[in-house]
Amino acid sequence: MSANFEPNVVAFLCNWCSYAGADLAGTSRVNYPSNIQIIRVMCSGRVNPLYVMNALQQGADGVLVSGCHPGDCHYMEGNFYARRRLGMLKDLMEFVGVDPKRFHMSWVSASEGHKWKEVVEKTVEDAKEAGPFEGFRRRQIDW
């Protein structure tokens, strides 16, 4: 791994808290790494574990899922389901040999622009440490 490797990190943010949090970080002129590609979803409970798999297959080096704090979900309980499912997914991916540094989950509320910066910094740093993801990435075959 080269020292100046810049990872691709895909982030799934819930519309109501984390996306607004990231927005706040932007309007507050908070500097955070630009390696992150944000995909807005309506709720962290919407994040199908296959999204995470697909992101890794298609070239992401790390994945972040972020939602409202427990109890603050716009849909009352979506993030509780997300916590259970993605917690299981993290265990499973670790068991089949995907570095746990590649997948993170966080709670970021709409007012936590600075927490968002910390979360992104941590995620990107971890993805950098883990290096380019070669595991089960989809490979282009040159015929």
């Binding site: 427990p70 109890g71 509780f80 916590r83 259970r84 917690g87 993290k90 746990p100 993170h104 989950m105 966080s106 709670w107 979360v119 941590k122 995620t123």
Partner: peptide
């Protein structure tokens, strides 16, 4: 459950 483990969350 409200108290599901969340030690993996940043």
């Amino acid at each position: 459950k409200p108290d599901d483990p969340e030690d993996f969350i940043l």
